[in-house]
Design a protein around this nucleic acid. Structure first.
Lengths: 147, 147
DNA sequence: TAATATAGTGATGCCACTTCACAATGAAGG
DNA sequence: CCTTCATTGTGAAGTGGCATCACTATATTA
């Protein structure tokens, strides 16, 4: 088999992995009453603590307007609250409710669980080989996209 | 470093790969005047030839109603046409226009090009190691999602 | 032929995302 | 202090993907 064909087949497998991961995570979020975007916002909040909407917009790389909408949804469904910013009266701090904090914790656990599902019990050499190749690919892609 | 941590870091890298690939492909589609979903439909058409909307709905795993919308968009932008089905007067055959066929060809080339960008020049052993690990992961994930 | 299944579409609604315009507030400089 | 400029967030309006429900037209089958 030509190299070119092996490359294409492997790329197809990567794309299949993308789909499967996406489906798995989407389903998992849905079980918690979340969408992917809202979960992403929660994830960011989990790592930053109470955060300004502007900061969230930059972190998620979406428009400020879109953050307003996502936070609206998360407030309606009880995951976060909007608190006044202590020093800047223009700004708003988004914070977890109890429900939101719990959901973020669940995401943390799901993340660990998924990583175990993928790798646990895999021969060390295979894992290392995979990780090395993955790093290589990532470097190539990052370079391509920045240039 | 604990194994668990290596697993989590590697999962994070996979997720970064997902994002980068997604961005790259989305940008590429946009250059051709396409969205991801419309490109997906074209891709399917490329591999099947003139196809019924019902069949497309099953192939893309979306509702029939959604296919109507996607085809509407692709007709408006000149990528496909709707032709009567020769034997079933309920059904519609979606076919490429010249522009659509060219776009599908371009997607084919882009796909090859991307696979080369990712793998070309990579040491054979590293590629093999990556491919083996990828297959392993894919098996685990497939099993998890079917059960 | 009558009952039933199937292909496609209108209506309606949710979610993610954008740009543009604008109000309130903050910051910097004269 | 006060004017000018920058920034935060939101209303308005639009695009696109997606779903369900109701309905029409056309098969299929008993």
């Amino acid at each position: 088999m030509a190299y070119d064909d092996r490359y294409r087949i492997t790329l197809d497998r990567i794309l299949e992995l993308v789909t499967l991961l996406n489906d798995d995570m989407t389903a998992s979020f849905a079980r918690d009453g979340l969408t992917g975007s809202r979960a992403h916002l929660l994830w960011e909040l989990h790592h930053r603590g109470p955060t300004t909407q502007r900061t969230l917009a930059d972190a998620l790389r979406v428009s400020a307007r879109n953050i307003t909408g996502l936070v609206d949804g998360l407030v309606d469904t009880g995951f976060v609250t909007r608190e006044p910013h202590p020093t800047d009266r223009r700004a708003i701090l988004v914070s977890f409710t109890d429900k939101g904090a719990k959901a973020a914790g669940a995401m943390d656990r799901d993340h660990r669980e998924l990583s175990r599902l993928l790798f646990d019990g895999m021969p060390g050499k295979r894992f290392d080989g995979f990780a090395a190749g993955l790093d290589d690919i990532l470097d190539r892609l990052r370079k391509e996209l920045t240039k």
